[in-house]
Amino acid sequence: MSDLTASGRAALIAFAALLLVLPWVVSSYVLSVAVICLYLAYVGQAWNLMLGFAGLLSIGHALFVGLGAYASGYLFAKYDVPPAIGIVAAVAIAMLMGAVIGYLGFRFAIGGVYFALLTIAFAEFVRILLEHAKFLGGTQGLFLPVSQESRRGVDLINLRGWPEMYYYVILALCLGAFVLCRALLESRVGYYWRAIRDNPEAAAAVGVDIFRFRMYAVVLSAGMTGAAGVFRAFYDNLLFPDQVLNIEKSIEITLAPIVGGVGTLFGPIFGAFVLTPLSELLTDVVEGLKDLGIIAKNVKTDGAKLLFWGLAVVLIVLFKPTGLWPWVCRRLGLVKAPGARS
């Protein structure tokens, strides 16, 4: 954090302190919103590794969440394998899938937006596959056994316990992803990724094996996202292909980094903490208006959220294409000027 100014450091410490004590000072509802924030910050960080670092656009990242969730969920529901072990399978399967997509995309030089289409195609393909997989519950859903007493206490092996435990688990994941991404960015692989992102031809000319380093990005991002799937499975306890792997979910993953700032480390976190409370608030407002009879009862509340997301992306693309975080940093003077990156 050597590139932070004094006020930047103060803001970081205040934010970290707030995150640490949050479960003791807020209601269970606010805590559940905070969990969503952190979850989106985490998967946003993983997604950002691909687009923001290596220049690879994925619009099918819910695929990796889904694979991780189903792998660990199935092992738990069917064979009593605790998620602490199941996560290994979950991450491995997600990485394998990432490797397949990456191999096809890069070996056959499917670039840019066509690569994004490839990721969508795979996500949709697996969603439909899961809907027809009877042993995984199909469209009926996969239920993870959970008892009332398991909702208390702290059992990290089985990922069962108080809501506060889930909060700290996802917070730890978030922190881990942040530290990992920061280290990667400062290392050889980070330099190579950003070189490939900015100009693949020039990167190759200085000896960078483009195929290899792009594969690293996809596989690593997929693995990180797969771990998020394990959390998802044991937090929700029920999985429907249509809800976990929907393209809407893939787009949701892209929002926090886009709004916060693609390619920055704090962008996905900042974006998640801006967007999630706002869309929750909007949902509440719409529900309230329904109760008051101002909006028809049959209007789907979810639609308001989608509209808001669309609007947010349009506004960002039009006015702050590099995202909110770099702008906030400059305005509040959180980062020192030369080599400004955070």
């Binding site: 950003r194 070189a195 992102r197 900015d198 100009n199 020039a202 000319a205 390619g263 080599g339």
Partner: peptide
Amino acid sequence: GRTFQLVKPFQDLTVLENVTVGALH
């Protein structure tokens, strides 16, 4: 090693970072 007639810098990297990518070789 080569340069490009139509220059191909890594746009979003600093001057130092650009050359560091080369030096990492």
